[in-house]
Design a protein around this nucleic acid. Structure first.
Lengths: 307, 307
DNA sequence: TGATTGTCTATTGTGCATAAAAGACGAGCG
DNA sequence: CGCTCGTCTTTTATGCACAATAGACAATCA
């Protein structure tokens, strides 16, 4: 049976809202709340009910009103606000990227389910969706097999990344002046500059900026396959850098400089310059990722693809 | 509960084997059979048991022996030899490609389950795996949405296909003389020639050849993402051409000629020639696919990808 | 008439149960 | 010993149940 994660998340968001609005303020309509809390009206009503029960809201003729400030203790723990399926992701990424898994190793779904404290279904579904990331492979009627986060994986990932992003960047430059993305790019440019000024304290913030920057560029391709591939990059970077803190400040500083150069190239709309800046940045990013691949071990060879 | 599809498939294969071997011949060991029938020993034993029960085999001191010829009626119907999950695929492809589905339409999993006569789980799992093909998109806690087999889809598919295959083809040519793939390529070349000679009767055989040819080339990239992407192409072509018979003979003849040209370019190892032949063939393939996209309707716009 | 809410129905997410299939272990044989 | 096979255990595939959530419709109100 499903746990009330959607409800709890919406409830927490409602608490935030109430806190901002302050005591005695009026609560908008259910339909408005539905949009604000990004959920269905059914859940909104459940939230309102619970808020009333806990004395946060009162229902008078004029509608709902805030009757007291939310306390820290009113909030549901964050863990309870994420669906089981989503919890599996971080556990699994930890398991596969940090667990020193070797290429060729088999994945025991039942064992994982026990270890993660979820049902086998959850594991099954996750593995299915995860397979597109190229780190595991399915053997029908049998277990999954690990292909491994190896040097080969990183190289293959970047081979495609470079093809896709170069093309996207060139397409980006062809957009009309009026395109929304130019504004977004300029905004990113100043955010990069701001970050660079405070690099010593804020260097952790780079990863978020990095993600938004590359997503913006890849989005310009207008190609769903290119855009979807960015998820692979994102996921890998998100988890990998979360654990690899070596030289982080230095690395990020360099990356910001490369980004700024890249952004200027884009703004110049000069294809040659763009391609050069893009390639330079990506090859430096590849180097970083490669440096943190634990074992330069051999990948399992792909099955023979012959006619 | 799981149906006995694996067993039934193995059983049918065993019947084939027995038919070829003939009455009174000896049956190999369980381990040998396991490899031959591509299944586990558990299933092999179940098959042997059933064969004995039906009087096809007898167990004497010397091992198993064939005691009578298999009859047509001994075989399990083919439908019962494919797992439910696999049955979903063809039904779903039929539904989405031929059912005149419009971009933006919602997918009702329950309804599909009823229509296909499978459980909702089967649908769920299939949709999950199918999502990587870019024809549908997930809305969490809600239904899936159809992005549509549109003109845009075909164009995006081919944009990536061209990038990937051009690169693979160039890599192919760099392989050492001794590489296995050169032999495979030559074999494909003569198969193409043979098919061309009998094009009037055998033009249906082209699709299989086409698949093997492109898979060989993409395999040379040594890149799992490129190789996996070929599955998308394969699936689309497999189902799409299965239903689009207009001008089939003429189309296939042309494609064979292009392939032969392409193959010669590869054998010449001249990068310029290869790239040209590859591009020529792919753009003609794109034209064919585009011609058969029903409505040149608008795709649902991608969500704004901004920073 | 258009927004708001009460009520009811339909659909999705998730655990569980169970048979099918895979795989492990060891005894026996050549 | 290395192969074969009997037996037992583990794991995967798949349907079902049921609460959570979404969505539809109608009544009510401004």
């Amino acid at each position: 049976m499903r746990s009330e994660t959607v409800f709890k998340l919406a409830f927490n968001r409602a608490l935030d809202m109430i806190g901002v609005a302050g005591v005695r303020s009026r609560i908008p309509s259910e339909n408005a709340l539905k949009l604000e809390l990004q959920t269905s009206r059914t859940t909104v009503r459940k939230v309102l009910g619970e808020l009333q029960k806990r004395g946060l809201l009162t229902h008078s003729s004029g509608g709902w009103h805030v009757s007291r400030r939310p306390r820290k203790s009113d909030y549901f723990p964050e863990l309870e606000t994420v669906a089981t399926s989503a919890q599996v992701e971080s556990k699994f990424m930890d398991w596969i990227l940090r667990g020193d898994r070797r290429a060729g190793e088999l994945i025991n779904g039942l064992e994982l389910a026990r270890q993660f404290g979820v049902s086998t279904n959850a594991i099954r579904e996750y593995l299915n969706r995860f397979s597109r990331f190229g780190l595991i492979e399915r053997r029908p009627n049998s277990s999954w097999i690990i292909r491994g986060f190896t040097r080969e994986f990183a190289l293959e990932l970047f081979e495609v990344r470079e093809m896709f992003e170069t093309r996207s960047a060139l397409t980006f430059a062809l957009q009309p002046d009026a395109a929304h993305s130019w504004k977004a790019l300029r905004r990113l440019q100043s955010e990069h500059r701001a970050l660079l000024r405070n690099i010593s304290e804020r260097y952790h913030d780079f990863s978020g900026l990095d993600e938004r920057f590359h997503r913006l560029i890849n989005g310009a391709s207008g190609n769903r396959f290119i855009f979807d591939f960015h998820d692979v990059i994102s996921l890998i970077f998100h988890y990998h850098y979360q654990w690899n803190k070596v030289d982080e400040k230095q690395r990020n500083r360099l990356a910001i400089l490369e980004h700024l150069d890249y952004i200027e190239a884009l703004l110049s709309r000069d294809p040659k310059r763009i391609e050069a800046a893009c390639k330079r940045h990506l090859s430096s990013a590849r180097k970083t990722l490669l440096a943190s691949v634990r074992t330069p071990g051999k990948d399992t060879p792909m099955a023979e693809h012959e006619a």
